[in-house]
Nucleic acid binder design. Structure first.
Lengths: 199, 199
DNA sequence: GGTTTGAAGTTGACAATGACAACATACGAT
DNA sequence: ATCGTATGTTGTCATTGTCAACTTCAAACC
């Protein structure tokens, strides 16, 4: 298991931190956040049960690092998608990595605890806000961004947890998501003013 | 601790199941779902560490029961609120019982596993759909309901997890929520087809 | 009224886990 | 070549979920 640069077994793994993160990501998707046991991750990385403590202060720190890594991949994909495809990219990410998504947004980790995690999370959000602001056709970009983020996030989570299994019966999750997203328009901030609306 | 009908200590608790659920709810809000330990719950109920097994098959079954109870209270409050105040009631519930809310919608429990939980969850959803349908001014009630549910749910969770701490700086969570909700309109379902569409 | 029976609680045990301490190894600077 | 220190290892401990065997007690039955 401990595949270093060469196949030779060395006392020191040589590349353990990334290996642990890979193993953790694997266990995470298989078993969910609660199944990510420090010892199991160490087992898969081919090291002793205490080796992870050289790279992570605790089980929670390992989970936080995995979540931070998830946020980075998430941010990258969102940025690459561009403003028009962000919603579907968001939902696709959630459906592809359901457990990682739960870990990232489940609220189990406090964002304030881990600096990397906090930064990664904020980066993802600001990327979305910037995209909405650059569109220019929305009166209150910040509010609209918050609404869009909420809508897409809620839709992702409810889909993930099976709350729309029958509602999305014939068309599949993505098709259902498109339909739901299409039913929403963003307007100006003030409630009683029905001005123009954009996609 | 074991306060039965009278204060007298009996070998049999006499009212243990509800007592365990109360204790579990208490620990849940204090420590989060991961902190709900079978032994700790038993401790608070004043019984031995194995007494809970007479009423719940496992730790997960206890959590499922707590979640189901949460869904019932949630449904009741939503129903009592009426169509106009459902969104704020939803968010208020999430803010009042953040950990219970996470347990209910966190996806840790599989809804298919526990019958009561599944039924309670579905009940809450159908109540919302019915409310939207009875309004009558929405072309596609089911899609609109799904969108509204997603929006409000996502907003709740993102608020809970602190992703809007700075965006909602001056006005507080509820005020911010009102502003975000006010920025959204519901329209017909199909984007490319301006005619009416059926579910 | 006395007996019995079974649900509700208890004590005891076991493997697994997260975390700490002490020890071993090997890479890189000197 | 030596030596220090980051990196892994073995050993240990309290805690947890769960299983098994034992107790208590209240209600059903004769």
């Amino acid at each position: 298991m401990s595949t270093s640069p060469r196949g030779k077994r060395t006392y020191h793994h040589g590349d353990l931190r990334p290996a642990l993160l890979r193993a953790a990501a694997q266990v995470l998707e298989e078993q969910g956040p609660a199944g990510v046991l420090l010892r199991e991750v160490a087992r898969r990385a081919g090291v002793s049960h205490n080796a992870p403590y050289r790279h992570f202060a605790s089980r929670e720190a390992l989970l936080a690092a995995a979540a931070a890594q998830g946020f980075e991949e998430f941010s990258a994909r969102m940025q690459a998608a561009g403003p028009g495809a962000m919603a579907e990219t968001y939902i696709a990410f959630a459906l592809e990595h359901p457990q990682l998504f739960r870990l990232m947004f489940g609220g189990t980790l406090k964002l304030s605890s881990d600096a990397d995690l906090s930064r990664a999370s904020r980066g993802a959000y600001e990327g979305l806000v910037a995209a909405f602001r650059s569109r220019g056709d929305v009166p209150d970009p910040q509010t609209a961004a918050a609404a869009a983020w909420s809508l897409v996030h809620g839709l992702s989570e409810l889909l993930l947890n099976g709350h729309f299994v029958e509602a999305s019966a014939g068309e599949g999750a993505i098709g259902f998501a498109r339909r739901v997203l299409g039913a929403v328009r963003f307007a100006a901030a003030a409630p009683p003013r029905p001005t123009h609306s954009s996609e």
